[in-house]
């Protein structure tokens, strides 16, 4: 794959891009079809990793870094932890086909495909979002902030308030999880279920305990 062989760099980018996106679609089909939750979580991790590769190719190195760390790392660990906690390995096969979700997703897809007709092609340098605002960041960052990584400059200064909001979001998630999971677990329902299986009429016991 000699880059000097006459093929412009842009073409190679586009070809690898197509290949990666194809893999992404395959993984998604797998996620839809697989019923084993452990496998689903692993496939979701692979999905994120592929997505990170695509982002690298599309020049979004910071985003790729984050997607790999968060999507393939943290998110997978949390999902595995949840699977261990809920002690459920297989998804139940639904007994009837649901039309509404299919309808909604097809409708959303139809609107998008229709809306894409007039969108500028991917990668064109004269798209509206390449000629307004963005050139300011690219040309002025050195004078305004003097930070080589423009993404950092935009993230921390030009749109610093968004990032403050982002930190607040993650803070909210932190205290939300603390609130939801820090209390003593109430596993009465599980116990009741088990007793029901054992002797059939056990569901009165916890009520009496609570009402006495």
């Amino acid at each position: 794959m000699n880059l000097d062989s006459g093929i412009p760099l842009g073409d190679w980018e586009a070809i690898i891009n197509v290949a990666l996106l194809g893999l992404l679609l395959l993984v998604t089909i797998g996620i839809i079809r697989v019923r084993n939750l452990f496998a689903v979580v692993m496939l979701a991790g692979i999905y994120s990793l592929l997505m990170a590769l695509v982002f690298t190719l599309l020049d979004a190195v910071d985003v790729a870094f984050t997607e790999a760390a968060v999507g393939a790392g943290v998110s997978t660990i949390l999902s595995l932890g949840t699977l261990a906690l809920i002690d459920s390995r297989r998804e139940k096969v639904p007994n009837r086909f649901q039309f509404v979700p299919l309808l909604v997703s097809l409708a959303a897809g139809a609107v998008l495909f229709w809306g894409m007709q007039d969108m500028p092609a991917v990668g064109s340098a004269d798209a509206p979002n390449q000629v307004h605002v963005a050139p300011y960041y690219i040309t002025q960052t050195q004078a305004d902030i003097d930070v080589p990584n423009i993404v950092t400059a935009v993230l921390a200064s030009y749109r610093g308030f968004d990032t403050l909001g982002e930190v607040t979001v993650i803070f909210t998630a932190g205290i939300g999880v603390m609130m939801l999971l820090s209390a003593m677990p109430v596993i009465g329902a599980r116990r009741r279920r088990r007793r029901e299986d054992d002797d059939g009429d056990g569901d009165k016991a916890p009520n009496d305990g609570g009402n006495a």
Binding site: L58, D59, V61, G123
Partner: peptide, 10 residues
């Protein structure tokens, strides 16, 4: 945000 043949914004 991609420009074909472009590079990362660093």
């Amino acid at each position: 945000g991609k420009v074909w043949g472009g590079t990362a914004p660093i």
